Simulated scan of single mutants.
Amino acid sequence: MTRPAILDQAAHVLEARAGTYGPATTSLRAIAARWSLTLGRSVTPAEVVLCMIDLKMVRLTHDPAHRDSLVDVIGYASLMPEVQR
C-alpha cells in the first residue's frame, strides 16, 4: 500500500467513526473521564490517544502486516493536535 493510500484510508476511517460515534474529541474526553475514575487520577484526552497508540503498537508487534492496526495508529496520531488545543 502506498503512503497516500494508507493516509487516505486513515482519513476515511476517522470520518466513518465520527459518523457513527460523533466527534473524536468528545469521545476522547469521555474516555479520559472514565479512565480518571478507574485509575484514581486525572487522565487527559492526549494520554488516551497515546495509550490507544500503544495498544495498536502491541497488536502490530504480534502481526506487523495487520493493516487495520497501522491505519489506527495513523488515525490516533492525527487526533493529537485536536486534543492538545
Results as ranks from 00 to 15, higher is better:
85 R>D: 09
32 A>G: 08
49 V>S: 01
27 S>A: 14
33 A>E: 09
3 R>K: 14
36 S>V: 03
64 P>A: 06
2 T>W: 07
49 V>Q: 01
70 L>P: 00
18 A>M: 07
28 L>V: 06
33 A>W: 02
55 L>N: 13
21 Y>P: 05
57 M>G: 06
84 Q>T: 14
4 P>R: 07
80 M>Q: 10
54 D>P: 02
8 D>G: 12
30 A>N: 14
53 I>G: 00
18 A>H: 08
27 S>D: 09
33 A>Q: 05
79 L>E: 01
74 I>A: 02
65 A>R: 14
80 M>E: 10
15 E>I: 08
36 S>G: 12
28 L>F: 09
83 V>Y: 01
75 G>C: 03
43 V>N: 01
38 T>P: 00
2 T>Y: 07
33 A>I: 04
55 L>V: 08
10 A>S: 11
4 P>D: 11
59 R>L: 06
39 L>A: 12
63 D>F: 04
52 M>N: 13
5 A>C: 06
48 V>H: 00
36 S>H: 03
28 L>T: 04
45 P>F: 00
32 A>V: 11
30 A>Y: 02
46 A>D: 13
67 R>H: 10
7 L>F: 05
5 A>L: 15
70 L>D: 02
73 V>R: 03
50 L>P: 01
10 A>V: 10
23 P>T: 15
56 K>Y: 00
56 K>E: 07
56 K>V: 04
68 D>G: 04
46 A>G: 15
73 V>C: 10
10 A>L: 05
3 R>F: 13
12 H>F: 06
5 A>E: 14
73 V>K: 05
52 M>P: 03
32 A>W: 01
25 T>E: 12
2 T>S: 15
52 M>I: 05
20 T>F: 06
75 G>A: 11
51 C>R: 04
42 S>H: 14
6 I>N: 06
60 L>R: 03
26 T>F: 04
38 T>I: 10
46 A>W: 01
5 A>G: 09
62 H>K: 11
84 Q>L: 15
18 A>R: 11
48 V>A: 02
69 S>M: 08
74 I>G: 02
81 P>E: 13
32 A>K: 06
35 W>A: 04
85 R>L: 09
4 P>L: 04
52 M>K: 10
58 V>C: 13
52 M>C: 10
42 S>L: 15
12 H>T: 11
41 R>L: 02
34 R>S: 05
10 A>R: 05
52 M>S: 14
37 L>A: 14
74 I>Q: 03
63 D>L: 03
42 S>R: 14
18 A>K: 07
26 T>H: 08
53 I>M: 08
70 L>R: 08
